[in-house]
Design a protein around this nucleic acid. Structure first.
Lengths: 288, 288
DNA sequence: AAGATTTTGTAATAAATTTACATGGCTGGG
DNA sequence: CCCAGCCATGTAAATTTATTACAAAATCTT
């Protein structure tokens, strides 16, 4: 998934030392204002960099583009995939309209970042574990407890033996009586909550599988058998984990869907049954 | 904030009925393969759409572009941010890798759709209600109960008088004893759950304010004083409300942030205190 | 059904990009 | 130290691409 043109800008910045004199000029002209570069013609950019047009063209070809327009396209692509959500942080003087749009934008850009960074086979491996599990426990505390709760609700529909706990004592007791075949799915934004780390270690010591949905490099990540690492650069100082929670939920959606797909079509009818059971509690919808 | 080039593809799709015959041809050629359109020259696209080149050019100008190249850039921008108008529905024969990426993409595109469709002042109006409230109850059932729980958790940090209930009897009792100044924030994907609609009506009859985060045109929407309408085209037949839940959470993030901003800077210190109170339960982070 | 208006296409023009080639500066061997 | 050869860069021409001006066709109005 993460193809070569992953981040053209860093690619250019990294290549700087190896470039010739006028190529450096082109590079810095682009890096100075990449946004503008995507809008300029080759002539404008050339004069901006104080070089000739073919130099710019040759520069583009060096970076895996077929020509200048193609290069601009790649550049636009990499800019849009939101490497620079820097400006998206909510500030105290923002209007509510602005902050709302910033929140949406940063959530979107984080999701697309994670989508590109997530190892494609990781979800598959986790799905394998979940399907085989004798029992699955979803644990989370604080903001992550509602994520864990949501996971339970989702996986319950799949007729998997799931449970959810936000009570540390319950979590600890379950971890203490864990055995091979049990899966402990532990969700934490920071991965630094001591209780959860201890519980993970305890469960693992008893032969259970610990799957962690948390920050890479955190104690919890270390204490897990299988890690879904989500690194969300968040301004947690003033506000709270918001985006990370969303990402966690979407990852769980992906896992749940993966499980359904693996179960095959005969399983679809089971889901239909659950849906139908809810019908009686609802007002009829317009189309039905 | 929702600037013109925000979501070009849906813009085109929406404008379809108003377009002339050959403009429709151009539109469908672009929508059929937007990725390709960004790479083609105007000549290629024109022959693909079976129209003349100036027709394509005029088409571009209709969509707030200065010309064809500018249009391509906008298109690329909107593609890169993962904004696909097409329903990226998961299909039974998809691999887990494919379904995962589809789930991310459809979540992203739904978020950007809602961002553009949400009336800018609506969040402001809801924030006003929340700040003034004597008491705020977050209600949700099923999948929405974890959303409501999350809302409680978030707003609790703001020192607002919040509560969360997923028990229908509790909800009904609270609605029955409601009074002016109480806010009932009811979350439901379908807006057709009878219990919740009755509870909304009951609360409103007692003079409380009912804020609904639900589907437009639903019974619950009708029974509310203030409606945050989220229309998510979802393939609920086979899978469950997933995207809608995410959208609901992001909307609540926006509301929570709106409340903080309104409270002003002296309130920030209160949040800091809560954050600090959690420190003791955590492993120290690397940088701290 | 004739005139007016809008839509679409043709052809000419202008712009932008690429290629081919020439020049200048640098490097290394004599 | 100088000259041959090579690489980097620029110039100018060719080509591709986009835009404009205008005419023809289609549609709508009266």
């Amino acid at each position: 998934m993460a193809s070569a043109n992953d981040n053209l800008l860093t690619l250019i910045a990294d290549a700087m030392p190896d470039l010739s004199k006028s190529e450096k000029k082109v590079a810095s002209a682009i890096l100075a204002d990449p946004e503008a570069a995507t809008r300029s013609s080759i002539a404008v950019l050339a004069s901006l960099a104080q070089v000739s047009e073919p130099t710019v063209n040759r520069f583009c070809k060096k970076f895996n583009a077929t020509g200048f327009p193609d290069f601009k396209l790649n550049l636009a692509h990499c800019l849009a995939s939101g490497i620079r959500y820097v400006s998206q942080n909510v500030e105290a003087r923002d209007s509510v309209e602005t902050s709302t749009s910033k929140i949406f934008n940063s959530t979107i850009s984080t999701l697309s970042l994670v989508r590109d960074k997530l190892p494609p086979d990781l979800i598959v491996r986790v799905v394998d574990q979940l399907i085989q599990a004798r029992r699955i426990h979803f644990f989370g505390l604080g903001a992550s407890s509602s994520v864990a709760k949501d996971a339970e609700h989702k996986f319950f529909r799949f007729n998997l033996p799931v449970s959810f706990h936000e009570d540390v004592l319950m979590q600890r007791m379950l971890a203490a009586s864990a055995a091979a075949g049990d899966v402990f799915f532990i969700i934490s934004y920071t991965g630094r909550t001591m209780e959860l780390v201890e519980i993970a270690e305890l469960a693992q010591a008893n032969g259970a599988t610990v799957i962690a949905l948390t920050a890479p490099g955190s104690p919890l990540a270390t204490a897990s058998n299988l890690l879904i690492a989500v690194a969300v650069p968040e301004d947690t100082d003033e506000y709270m984990p918001m985006t990370s929670r969303i990402v966690h939920l979407v990852v769980l959606d992906a896992l749940a869907t993966g499980v359904t797909l693996r179960r095959g079509p005969e399983f679809q009818s089971h889901l239909k049954k659950i849906k139908d059971s809810l019908r009686a509690t609802r007002f009829p919808s317009d189309e039905a």
